[in-house]
Amino acid sequence: MTSETKTGPRNWLRERSELGICALLVVLGVLVLTDALRIPTDFAQRGPVGPKAVPILVGSLLLLVAALLARDVLRGGRGEAEGGEDVDLSAPADWRTVLLLCGAFLANAVLIGVVGFPISGAILFWGAAYALGSRNLVRDPLIAAGLSILTFLVFNNLLGVPLPGGPLMEVF
């Protein structure tokens, strides 16, 4: 009982973490409003309604919805987390997996211009599969490399959608 009162405020926030969405909506709203107010309207305006009107409307509505959502959360309303075929909501969120996955994704974004898609794509696939718990040290990289090179060839050479080949493809 005592430990519960100790972590009281933190617990209170944790249960109402959806207030973070309200904060996000407020930030977006303020951003949209301040951006709209700096648009000069004295020139080039065609018609009675300029480029400001809709952003001001959207920004104000963002603030309004943020307030209404906050009221809903404080009154005990909770957004329902989305279920799915592979989603097990009874387990707590596994942040390590999510962070590793983000890492794999960003690695591809950073590397694609440097080493080309066949390599960065393989790193993305292998990294993501590893993050999600696949630990087969032979099959995983082989599938990653095969998929990446095949995708590159199909898109770049067959479908006419250019992808950066990088040094690996210059060898051929």
């Binding site: 592979d86 993305l124 696939f125 993501a128 590893y130 998929l147 995708t151 898109f155």
Partner: peptide, 14 residues
């Protein structure tokens, strides 16, 4: 499942 969701991220990036 690891291959499935790795594949989704892969093709999303493409």
């Amino acid at each position: 499942r690891p291959y499935l969701y790795a594949g989704i991220l892969f093709f999303a990036s493409v």
